[in-house]
Computed example of a mutant assay.
Amino acid sequence: MANIDLPLNEEEMDRISDLSYTGTHSLSLKMIHQILPDLWHTSKNQMQLITERGF
Rank of each mutant, 00 (worst) to 15 (best):
K44M: 12
I50M: 12
M31W: 07
G23P: 03
H41N: 15
L27K: 05
D14A: 02
E11G: 01
H25Q: 13
T51E: 14
E12V: 03
Q48R: 09
T42L: 02
L36H: 13
G23H: 04
D14P: 03
M13T: 02
I32G: 01
M47Y: 13
R53Y: 05
E11H: 04
L8Y: 14
M47H: 14
W40Y: 12
T24E: 13
G54T: 12
Q46A: 14
M13L: 08
L29E: 15
L36C: 09
P37R: 08
M13P: 01
S17Q: 13
D5T: 03
G23R: 02
E52L: 05
L29G: 02
N3K: 04
S43D: 15
I4Y: 04
I32K: 09
P7V: 00
F55R: 10
W40K: 15
M1H: 00
I4E: 05
L27E: 08
T24N: 08
P37Q: 07
K44P: 10
H33C: 11
R15W: 05
E12D: 11
L8T: 03
M47A: 07
D5G: 00
E52K: 07
E10F: 05
S17K: 13
N3Q: 12
M1K: 01
H25V: 15
S17Y: 04
Q34Y: 01
T51N: 07
N45C: 12
D14C: 00
E52M: 02
L8D: 06
R53E: 14
L27I: 08
E52G: 05
M31H: 09
L27F: 12
S17A: 13
S17N: 11
H41L: 12
L27H: 04
K44S: 10
H25W: 06
R15T: 04
G23I: 04
L19T: 09
L6W: 05
R15L: 05
Q46G: 01
Q34D: 14
M31R: 09
T22P: 03
M31Y: 00
T42I: 09
G54V: 10
L36E: 15
D5H: 01
S28C: 07
H25E: 10
G23A: 00
D14G: 00
M13N: 02
L19N: 00
Q46T: 08
D5Q: 11
I32T: 10
T22N: 07
R53C: 02
N45V: 11
T51A: 12
T22W: 11
M13Y: 01
E11N: 08
L39N: 03
T42S: 14
L29P: 09
P7L: 00
R15A: 05
L27D: 08
L49V: 02
Q46Y: 09
